[in-house]
Every structure is written in structure tokens, then in C-alpha cells.
Amino acid sequence: MKLLLPETVRDALAHMAGRDGVTTPIAGGTDLLVHWPVRLGERDRTYVDLWQLQELKPLRWTADALILGGLTTYWDVIRDRRAGDEFPLLVAAARQVGAIQIQARGTWAGNIVNASPAADGVPALMAYGAVVVLESQRGTEEVPLDGFYTGYKDMRRRPDQLIVAVRIPRRRYSYQTFAKVGSRRAQSIAKVGLAVTQSDDGWRVVAASMAPTIRRCPAIERLLQQGAVLRDSDDLLPAIARDVSPIDDVRSTAEYRRRVMARVLYDELRETCGWR
């Protein structure tokens, strides 16, 4: 294996520009190292270790956004009091990631590019309308997170691009909730994940572990926008069928995922929407 240790973003981008072929950026390592002993093929890659890039670590507040750095960790957000006040779903999601050791190493940007359909951080970011800021030697590009994924583990990031920031617009939210259903109460991978927000920009309903990528649910958002009156959780099933396509896998079943998504969503939204 080959490990490159840039000290500046500039150097990192130079490494990623392809001089040594395709490289894999590594930040906290919390996804990569889990499989390190068994996925021997991964040892033949070239890695760019970003951990020294101090400039990417802090999160920043501006007048109209919270900006997470490319290396901002879950723990950084948990510790930031304003984040808890203004973006409570980020904190709720961060606390659901592994245990404290993982929360202290794992980064939001890493969660995005690892592109797991079961990611904990991505649904909350997407529900807040986050924008991914990509940088390369060719310049800067911004991609809204809800348009970032194009298929299972496919995304709008070229191999030479690095996520240097994630911009979360500050809005007034009239409703927000985060729910993760795992197979035990801590340190588990989501079988169903949900993040829902309502702001002046409208409803955003984001589902995890329900499709090849984390994605918004436009049919459900439409129902909510229209103020549809539902009588029970089964009324959500047709919209769920249009929005997502869960599978049977080693963790759960498609049937369970659909029903739990309907029940949890219904139960969470019941009072706000005036349902029974």
C-alpha cells in the first residue's frame, strides 16, 4: 500500500490530480479500517491521508450558513452548542454513529463520500438542504447533497475532487425530526433511517436504508405539502412504494422496512399534521 501525507489542501489536490493514478482520500478511517484485515485488495491502493490538513477541521458559522469543514467530525458538531440549538438533527444523528471513539474520528464529509445507503449523518444533512463543496486543481464546484448521488456508491465527485466543506443554509424550521431504527439500541447500522424537516422552503423527507442511496421522498413530500389527511400508517404505503425500493438483506427485510418507515413517519407526523 502507498500512503501520501500532504500538509496542505493544495498538496492534497495535487496528489489527487492523478499523477499516481486514482487515489483514495482517507480522513478518520472509520469506514476503511473496519474491513482492513480482510479486504486485502484495498491494500494495493494509493491513499491520501488528510488528517494533517488543519485548515479543513473547524466548523464555521456565517450569517446565512453553518459550514462544516472537510475534516469536521461528528464530535465537533456534538460539542458545538449552536449546532444543537439550530440543527438538532445533526446532533441527534451524530450521537447515533457508532460509539464515542468513532464519533471523534469519523467526519461528515467521509460519511458523504463513503456513500453507504445506511449512513447516519447524510439524512440529517440532506433534510437541512446541505450543499457539498468540492475542490480540485481545476476549481471549485458546488453540488446540492440531494442531487449528489447517482446510484449505489455512485456520486457526482470526480477522483481528483475533494470535499473541502459542507454548507448548511440557516433557515427557520417549523418542524424537524430524526429517527433511526437499528437492531439494537446503540452501535448498530440503520435498518430504517428518517430525517424530516419543514421550513419556508417546504417539506423535506429523507430516507436511509430504503434504496441504493440515501434519498428524498418526493411523493411523501407532496402529500405533506398538500396537507393530505391520513387515517393510519398504511395510507403512507403507496407513496413509500413510489419513493423508495428497499431490499431483503442480511440486516432486515423489505417488508419490515416499508412498514416501519410508514409507522414511524405516521407516528412522528401525526400531531403536526393533525392526523388521528
Partner: peptide
Amino acid sequence: LTNYLIPTSDD
């Protein structure tokens, strides 16, 4: 151990 789950202290 990510997919064969044993109880955590919280369970």
C-alpha cells in the same frame, strides 16, 4: 460483529 449483534450495555 457489525451484522451479528450482541447486546450493548444499553440493551
